[in-house]
């Protein structure tokens, strides 16, 4: 893996990662040789010592934040499901250490049923929006959970700018497809690229976030840099990472997980302790860092904000 030395000098100042972290990343790369052993023995080679200093300043503290204590930065950035960078939890932190490539501009297209489609560089995309911090619970379909201080802005703000038309019933999101940068895509574990979707009213809900950071700084590759979705009342896989396309569509989008297992992963995938995954119970979860499991709450505890979206719907049927 050769990285041109000049690279640092060419980057705009705002994008330069703190030198300490940069050095750390090189260590991660050196560790690549040990990946095979690491995954075999399930040991985590990646150990960020402590929470790094925040880089976002003047963050507004958003509504809806939980008072629960946040899962340590270390855990949030080393325990990841991001199959584009390998299927075990430790490998994204290693394989996505240099993701996304700082030389290539990150472009996001907004298209489909809207009056103001467009293609934006990442900086232009987020410039109009006020970034805020939102501390949300995050519940994985596998039965573990975290509390994560996200940085982002409501998806609704972006949607209003794009001006969807009357045909727009759903929003479909697509992750980057680039097997060179995302080695996990070289194998057909899922039908790449990763696709997710929300109903328009879910997308417009004030809880739904487009996140660009966590713990007060830019997202790391393993957390879905540079921009990802956060839908805190749904299982984690709905919160699609590293987005390159946002499309307004008339028909229900088929997500990557729906294609992989339609019986197991539905479109809605709301956190629901009363509806089990076909293979395991969803009634409890292990909060990362805790020994015993705790009870899972309907809509991950966000019922006040989102239960009305599903009024009259049989949640056992619409999984």
């Amino acid at each position: 893996m050769s990285i041109p030395k000049k690279r640092l000098g060419k980057m705009p100042a705002g994008e330069i990662t703190d030198h300490k972290l940069y050095l750390n990343r090189r260590q991660f790369i050196k560790g690549t040789a040990a990946i095979a052993t690491a995954s075999l023995l399930q040991s985590s080679l990646v150990r960020a010592a402590e929470t790094p200093e925040p880089t976002f300043t003047n963050l507004v503290t958003g509504n809806y934040s939980t008072q629960e204590s946040s899962t340590p930065f270390d855990a949030v950035t080393t325990y990841n499901n991001f199959y584009e960078f390998g299927i075990d939890k430790a490998s994204p932190a290693i394989l996505a250490a240099d993701f996304p490539d700082k030389i290539k501009p990150w472009r996001v297209t907004i298209d489909g049923e809207c009056d103001k489609p467009g293609e934006y560089d990442y900086d232009d995309l987020i410039r109009p929006f006020t970034l805020e911090e939102r501390i949300y619970r995050f519940r994985c379909v596998e039965g573990w959970s975290m509390v994560i201080p996200w940085v982002g802005f409501p998806l609704a703000d972006l949607i209003k700018r794009a001006q969807p038309n009357s045909k727009a019933k759903f929003v479909q999101f697509t992750t980057l497809y680039d097997p060179q940068q995302m080695p996990g895509q070289r194998r057909a574990v899922l039908d790449w690229p990763y696709v997710e979707g929300l109903r328009m009213d879910e997308a417009m809900n004030p809880l739904t976030l487009l996140s660009v950071g966590l713990y007060g700084r830019e997202l790391l590759g393993q957390n879905g840099a540079p921009i990802r979705l956060v839908v805190p009342w749904k299982y984690g896989f709905k919160s699609i990472k590293s987005i390159v396309n946002i499309r307004f569509v008339e028909t229900l989008p088929r997500s990557a997980w729906m294609k992989a297992g339609p019986r197991e992963y539905g479109f809605y995938s709301n956190v629901n302790p009363n509806v089990d995954h076909p293979r395991w119970s969803q009634s409890r979860e292990r909060r990362i860092g805790e020994l015993l499991k705790r009870k899972t709450e309907l809509f991950n505890g966000y019922g006040d904000e989102v239960a009305h979206l599903y009024a009259g719907m049989d949640l056992k049927k619409y999984i």
């Binding site: 023995l41 399930q42 040991s43 985590s44 899962t71 270390d74 855990a75 080393t78 325990y79 939890k89 430790a90 573990w144 292990r286 990362i288 860092g289 020994l291």
Partner: peptide, 23 residues
């Protein structure tokens, strides 16, 4: 021994219980 050392020195990742159960 590997599991015990891993648990004690906190080397089993963020979800050590799952790791030990699996292993």
């Amino acid at each position: 021994a590997w599991m015990v050392v891993g648990l004690v020195t906190n080397q089993l990742g963020a979800n050590p219980i799952e790791t030990v159960t699996r292993d």
